[in-house]
Design a protein around this nucleic acid. Structure first.
Length: 296
DNA sequence: CACGGCTATGTTTTAAATCA
DNA sequence: TGATTTAAAACATAGCCGTG
C-alpha cells in the first residue's frame, strides 16, 4: 500500500466514479481499480459498494475516509516543510453558506487575520449540508452554517440575523402607522428562496390568509432580490445583514411587522469534536463582535 | 560494469455484468 | 440499448539485485 492508493480512494469519492477519478489522476480506469483493490486487500475490507450503477462508500469506507484525508493532508504539509522549511503557513479552511460568505465572512476573516497574521485563510462557499460533509471529511476546519446537529460535530450559535420586511424609497408603507399581513400580501413580493428552516417560518405567516400573496419574483440570489426591491419591483423579506449598505444609504427601508418578531437566520459555527480549540475560540468571539458591529 | 530475472505498476484490449 | 464499471489477458517499462 502507498500514498497513490489512498489518493485514488479519495479521488474516486470526490469525483463519484472510477472513470472520472482516473481522468483526474492521468491514469487509466483499470489502474484506478487496481489501486483501490490493492488498498482493499491491505485493509482487508470492501471500501466501495459496487452493486449498482453508482458506487457508494461502505460503512468501513466511511470510517476510513477522514483518515485518508488526514494522511494525504499530513503528507502535503510535511513535504512543504521539507522543501520550504521557513515558509510553512498554517492554513485555516473555513466553509460557509452563501449568505454568511457574502456578509459575515469579509469582516470576520479580516479581524481574524489581524489576530493571527501568520495564518492563511481559505474560504469555501456551499450549502450547509455540503459544508457539514466537508468538515466531517476534514476537508474544512470550520463551517458557518444554519443550525444542524450531527454526532461528532460541535456546534455553537454565533449570531442571529433578523429577517425584516424591506421596501424601496418612497414606498407607501413608510407612512403607514401599522401594517398587517393583508397589507403585505396586497403588494407584489420579491420572494428570496433560502433552504433555511427560519425562512420557512416567514412563508408560514401567509398560510392563514384568505388570498395568497402575489409572488411576482422568485429569486434564489439575495443580491438579485435586494436590487429588485431597490428598483421598486416589489417588497420583500431579507436578512438584515445583507442590506446594511443599502439601508445606510437610504435606498431601502425596513418597515416594522409584528409577525416577524423573533424570526432570524441563525448562523452556527461547527467543527469536529475536540479539534482546533484555539482557533475556535477566536472565531467564536469574532463572530459575536462582528454581529454586534453590524447592527450598530 | 553488463546482463538477465523478478517484481511492481502501467497501458491497451476485450469481455461480462448491471442499470436506467 | 447505451452508458458505466469490473475484471482479466497480454504486453511495456522501470527499478532492484545477484551473478559473471
Amino acid at each position: 500500500m502507498n500514498l497513490d492508493h489512498i489518493e485514488a480512494f479519495v479521488f474516486v469519492i470526490h469525483y463519484g466514479s472510477f472513470n472520472k477519478a482516473a481522468e483526474a489522476l492521468f491514469l487509466s480506469q483499470p489502474s484506478v481499480s487496481a489501486r483501490i483493490q490493492s488498498l482493499e486487500r491491505e485493509l482487508d475490507c470492501e471500501l466501495f459498494d459496487r452493486s449498482g450503477k453508482k458506487i457508494f462508500l461502505t460503512e468501513k469506507g466511511e470510517l476510513f475516509l477522514p483518515y485518508a484525508q488526514q494522511i494525504l493532508q499530513s503528507f502535503r504539509v510535511s513535504k512543504q516543510l521539507l522543501q520550504h522549511p521557513t515558509a510553512l503557513p498554517p492554513e485555516l479552511r473555513v466553509g460557509s453558506t452563501s449568505l454568511a460568505s457574502g456578509y459575515l465572512m469579509p469582516n470576520l476573516l479580516r479581524a481574524f487575520a489581524e489576530q493571527h497574521p501568520e495564518v492563511r485563510v481559505k474560504l469555501t462557499t456551499g450549502p450547509s449540508d455540503e459544508i457539514l460533509a466537508k468538515v466531517l471529511n476534514k476537508e474544512l476546519d470550520f463551517g458557518f452554517v444554519r443550525n444542524l446537529a450531527h454526532p461528532g460535530i460541535q456546534s455553537e450559535r454565533i449570531y442571529e440575523d433578523p429577517i425584516r420586511l424591506y421596501v424601496p424609497a418612497g414606498h407607501r408603507f413608510l407612512d403607514a402607522a401599522s401594517l398587517s399581513l393583508e397589507d403585505v400580501a396586497s403588494e407584489p413580493l420579491v420572494n428570496f428562496e433560502c433552504d433555511s428552516l427560519d425562512w420557512l417560518r416567514v412563508h408560514r405567516l401567509f398560510d392563514r390568509l384568505a388570498s395568497p400573496p402575489d409572488f411576482a419574483y422568485q429569486v434564489d440570489h439575495v443580491e438579485a432580490a435586494k436590487r429588485l426591491i431597490v428598483q421598486g419591483a416589489g417588497i420583500g423579506f431579507l436578512p438584515e445583514l445583507s442590506v446594511r449598505h443599502e439601508s445606510e444609504a437610504g435606498r431601502i427601508f425596513a418597515v416594522p411587522l409584528a409577525e416577524l418578531a423573533g424570526i432570524a437566520l441563525q448562523t452556527h459555527l461547527i467543527s469536529l469534536v475536540g479539534e482546533n480549540g484555539a482557533f475556535a475560540k477566536t472565531l467564536r468571539e469574532l463572530g459575536r463582535i462582528g454581529s454586534q458591529s453590524h447592527s450598530a
